[in-house]
Nucleic acid binder design. Structure first.
Length: 353
DNA sequence: AAGACGTGGTC
DNA sequence: TGACCAAGTCT
């Protein structure tokens, strides 16, 4: 038996809606939602009905863990509380708030989408998954998430969590999207979708799932057995950056606007092969960017030694008090924080509790 | 349509 | 310590 042979049966199952019996579906919805009510984490965006607030959270959560999002979310919402405010902002301001979260294209696209919403949609987000899908940065998952959570549109989301849950629970060879849609509780699509993701994130874990705590264990087909995809090989590199200070200012360098990685963002000036003597080495830290693991040497240069720097991008002296307003790369933030040059602002505003 | 895109937590 | 991995989207 192989996937090709069994594919037609899958389609038939999906078409006739017999992936699970009605009783099983009812059991699944009831148990999952009851579990969710008892175990849902108290997250800021779950306290809000504002579609914009939901949108921001969904973009930030793409490929990013909840814990990494919380601080940035509070700061972002305090700084850009409405679509209109976001649309009015300049891109570097948006990137500055996003700094450290990664996948900066998300911020650029969300900013562009906010301008579309402001200019062409009277400031209102589309209320359906199909409408949302047309905006930059909003794909299959995010459109379904916003539509179901903010507007009650009965569309099942399929993210990494849901995919894993469905792969474990479903009968063999049924389609993932179809199973998720069949299981979805159309009366509470937003809660149901979040419950599925919450289950995947906290119980139905990739490696060692906590099946004993699982509310739908009874009708799970695998109880945890789950294939893992092979990973890309990582690359190791060593690079150098210079810390140059002049009083309360730090020298920063802008990455090329057409760089594929962190275009136009600011970092400590790069050094090439001719490094300063080892006595100038402040420290070495490791930093991973996508599949490359960098060993980063940070050298101290005096302000009168900037001519020793190689040809680089645009450079600028920035007051340490203004660093929070600069779109720094994550690496630059990390280095400047470690040196206590940069202290990220305490997030304030209405979201703070 | 496979590869690119960031980062920090976890085990 | 280092590999794995996270509420995807775009090209």
């Amino acid at each position: 038996m192989n996937a090709w042979v069994s594919a037609p049966a899958t389609i038939q199952n999906v078409g006739s809606g017999e992936i699970f019996t009605p009783a099983q579906i009812k059991h699944f919805r009831h148990n999952l939602l009851a579990w969710y009510e008892a175990h849902a984490r108290d997250l800021p965006w779950r306290r809000m009905r504002d579609p914009y607030a939901i949108w921001v959270s969904e973009i930030m959560l793409q490929q990013t863990r909840v814990n990494a999002v919380l601080d940035h979310y509070a700061r972002f919402m305090a700084r850009f509380p409405t679509v209109q405010k976001l649309a009015e902002a300049e891109e570097p301001e948006v990137l500055a708030i996003w700094s450290g979260l990664g996948y900066y294209r998300r911020a650029r696209m969300m900013h562009r989408a906010a301008r579309v919403i402001s200019n062409e949609l009277k400031g209102h987000l589309p209320r359906t998954a199909a409408g949302l899908r047309r905006l930059p940065g909003i794909g299959a998952y995010t459109s379904a998430a916003i539509a179901s959570i903010a507007f009650g549109d009965p569309v099942a989301v399929v993210d990494g969590n849901v995919e894993r849950v469905v792969l474990r629970v479903r009968p063999r060879n049924s389609g993932i999207q179809a199973v998720a849609q069949v299981l979805l509780d159309p009366m509470r699509p937003g809660d149901f979708n979040q419950a599925m993701m919450e289950l995947g994130a906290t119980v139905c874990l990739p490696r060692n799932p906590l099946c004993l705590h699982c509310p739908v264990q009874k009708l799970c087909n695998t109880r945890g057995e789950h294939p893992v995809a092979p990973r890309k090989e990582s690359v190791r590199k060593r690079v150098g950056h210079a810390l140059v200070r002049r009083g309360e200012r730090v020298l920063l360098e802008q990455r090329a606007q057409d760089a594929s990685l962190m275009a136009g963002m600011w970092e400590l000036p790069q050094l090439d092969g001719t490094l300063p003597g080892p006595e100038r080495l402040l420290f070495t830290i490791s930093h991973s960017i996508t599949v490359t693991n960098y060993s980063v040497d940070i050298f101290r240069l005096r302000a009168d030694e900037v001519h020793l720097l190689p040809e680089g991008g645009r450079r600028k002296w920035i007051s340490v008090d203004d660093l929070a307003e600069i779109p720094l790369t994550g690496l630059a933030r990390k280095v400047l924080k470690r040196l206590q040059v940069f202290k990220p602002p305490v997030s304030g505003g209405p979201l703070q509790r």
